[in-house]
Amino acid sequence: MRPTLEYLRQLERHLLGQHTAAEAEAWRVRQLLDSELAADADTQQLLYQGLQVAGRQQLRRELELIHARLERPSRRQTWWQAATSPLRSLLVRRSRGH
């Protein structure tokens, strides 16, 4: 992995609390020497927050699709079908009787 990507991976391990004790200590020392580190960690945290919101939106879109599929008018009776259902049943029974 190239250095920039490795840096992002290190930031991620720090932010997700995946550092070992030794890595955490090295991180504290690095923070003292590198003034950009905290700002970069804040930016990455912001990306994760944005991804959370984007993920929720995606899940809501998927739920809308499931709802639309399950609640299609063809699956449920319309008021007209409901109102005429006894009459249709009667006609079916009578046609079978003939």
């Binding site: 912001l46 990306l47 927050q49 944005g50 991804l51 919101v53 984007a54 939106q57």
Partner: peptide
């Protein structure tokens, strides 16, 4: 700030 990220995700 979060909404700006959201825009970029899209």
């Amino acid at each position: 700030a979060t909404l700006s990220v959201l825009e970029q995700v899209e």
